[in-house]
Structures are given as C-alpha cells and as structure tokens.
C-alpha cells in the first residue's frame, strides 16, 4: 500500500521537476545543437564559413517580429515616417486647430489600450483637400483639412482621430516592415553593445532603417493596410469612443459623408481604405443592439460650440 502511494506521488513530482529543468535549458540547448549541426555541415564541406554564419544568424533571428521592436526604436521609425510624409505635404499651421486636435486626440489616446508611447501621441492638420490621414508609429498623426471638413460634429472628429490612434496602439505601421529587416532593426548590426557605430555598420544600419521607413510609408500612402486591418482599427475606434463618452455611431455618420465626397480613383482614402459602405456594414454589425449615449442638450451644445470655434474655417 505504502509503495503504491510512493509511486502515485513520486512520479508526478519527478515529472514536474523534469519539465521545469527542460524548460529552463531548452533555449540554450537547442541553440547549441543548432550551432553544432551547422558546424558538422561545415566540417563535412557541405557549407562554407559564410554560409554557416548566415545560418547561425538566421537561427538566432527566429522569433524576431514587430513585437520585438522597442518603443524607442518605434519612436525613431515613426519620426522618419512623419518626416517623409511631410516632405510633400504642407502643415496647416493654425494654432486653434492644432490645440483642438491635440486636446481631443490626447483624450482619445489616454482611453486606448496603449495610452503611452515612447514620445507620446501628437496631432497636426495637413493643408490639403484630399480626404486622408496618416498615423506614424509611436503616435505622430496627420489629418488633412479635406477629411476634417467631412466631420459635422466633435464626435465625428473624435471618430477620425480614434481610428488613427487605433492604428498606432495596435502597431499596424510596424507590421508593414518586411520581416527580413527586423533582425537588424531590433538587434542592430556588429557589436550590439557599442553605443556608436563605425562607418560601415552605420551605413548598413541606416540602409535598413530607410527600407523599414519605406515599407511603412508606401503602405500608408499607396497600397494601404489590409481590409482586415482597417476593420480592426474601426472596431478599436468604437471601443475608444465609447470609453470616452462619444457616440461611436459618429464614425458611421462620418463615413456616409466620405462616401459622397470620395472620388473613385482618388489618390487618398479612395485608394488605401475599404469602401465606406463596407466599413459601415462592419460597424453596424459591431454596434448591433448598442444604445448611443444621450448627453444633456447643454453638453452637446458645448461640444458643438468648441468644434465650430476650432474647425469652422477648416
């Protein structure tokens, strides 16, 4: 009987200890095995030294994804994307517009699942009739006058900004970086502990940086995110709007205006976003059964007054 008890408890215990040890050593062990394997292949003359190095580096890079990009790296990427976008776009430099967008945008960002980024969320209007908006990684958000003109209330401006904040919070921009660049972006080149890169390493790393920035810029300006990504940003925007107390149906109202104003073949949201009617369908599904908030008249009037004060001349 006693022996039976021992077997009943000791084996599970040993199994637990075994699993614990295995987990602790797995990474190092497999890493070593991988290197010995390439060493053996090299020894056998199947691959040369360079190929061995490439394979080993590749093995170390396994698992590097956009999630490994640090908030600091994201910040530098985002600044470069914004600088690239601003090369061919003029800022609409009107203080009351900028102030309003930043008060509203900050309120929305703070209600997102990622309220803080390395450099924070910041918003600017672009002097263009196009219906367009761009969110650079880390939180630099640009919105055209053309898009702001589609909004007929503060809730609708909130809908525009909440959609852009959602792209930032969900790191959609970083996901556009091609996977083969990620190791250099995340780990760096050469001596990873060096604080200042030598000329060759600097050139190599800057090239990767430029390519990564290019991946994101061309996605947000030309090809657009996938339909799934845009629907995801809409769904996230609805959550943010609800949390802050705006009517999420404002996004639907905004899209109806955009449907009328977007010109087929246009070089803006017409090119990079799903048809507003498709987005509305998804939003209606997400809001089925939802009752919109009914703020007191005075509150609505206050919102409308400051919306008009800031954006009537847009």
């Amino acid at each position: 009987m006693k022996r039976l008890k021992l077997t009943r408890y000791i084996f599970p215990f040993l199994l637990l200890v075994g699993l614990f040890l295995l987990r602790a050593s797995a990474q190092g062990l497999f890493g070593q095995l991988g290197q010995s394997a390439t060493g053996a292949l090299q020894g056998a003359g199947v691959i040369d030294q360079n190929q061995k190095q490439a394979i080993d580096q590749g093995a170390q890079a396994v698992g590097k994804s956009f999630e490994d990009i640090t908030p600091e790296q994201e910040y530098y990427i985002g600044r470069a994307v914004a600088a690239t976008l601003l090369m061919s776009r003029k800022v609409y430099d009107v203080q009351k517009v900028t102030d309003y967008l930043n008060l509203l945008g900050t309120s929305l960002a703070e209600a997102s699942d990622r309220p803080e980024t390395f450099g924070g969320y910041h918003f600017l209007a672009i002097d263009s009739d196009e219906i367009n908006a761009f969110s650079s990684p880390g939180g630099l958000v640009l919105v055209t006058r053309g898009l702001l003109r589609c909004a007929q209330s503060e809730d609708e401006v909130a809908a525009i900004l909440a959609h852009e904040v959602s792209h930032v919070a969900r790191q959609h921009g970083l996901k556009a970086i091609k996977k083969d660049r990620l190791t250099k972006a995340v780990v760096g080149v050469g001596n990873a502990t060096a604080q200042v890169l030598g000329p060759k390493e600097l050139q190599e790393q800057t090239a990767t940086f430029k390519d990564s920035v290019g991946d994101i810029s061309s996605t947000i300006v030309n090809s657009g995110y996938s339909r799934k990504t845009e629907f995801e940003a809409d769904a996230t925007a609805l959550v943010i709007l609800k949390r802050v107390g705006y009517d999420p149906r404002a996004l639907e109202a905004l899209l109806k205006v955009m449907k009328v104003r977007l010109k087929p073949g246009g070089n803006d949201f017409a090119k990079t976003h799903p048809d507003p009617l498709d987005r509305i369908k998804q939003i209606e599904k997400a809001l089925a059964g939802y009752t919109s908030p009914t703020p007191p008249e005075a509150v609505l009037a206050a919102r409308q007054a400051r919306f008009q004060d800031a954006l009537s001349g847009i």
């Binding site: 790296q73 690239t84 601003l86 600097l202």
Partner: peptide, 20 residues
C-alpha cells in the same frame, strides 16, 4: 539605443536631406 537610434536618425536625415 540598440538598433534604430539617434545616430541612425542623424545619418538618415542627412542622406535624404529630410527636414525634421
């Protein structure tokens, strides 16, 4: 400062003549 950092930004800015 590992990977993309201020040094890379300075070089990128210079190469592309970007206005920050």
């Amino acid at each position: 400062g590992k990977g993309f950092n201020e040094q890379i930004e300075t070089q990128y800015k210079q190469d592309g003549k970007l206005d920050y």
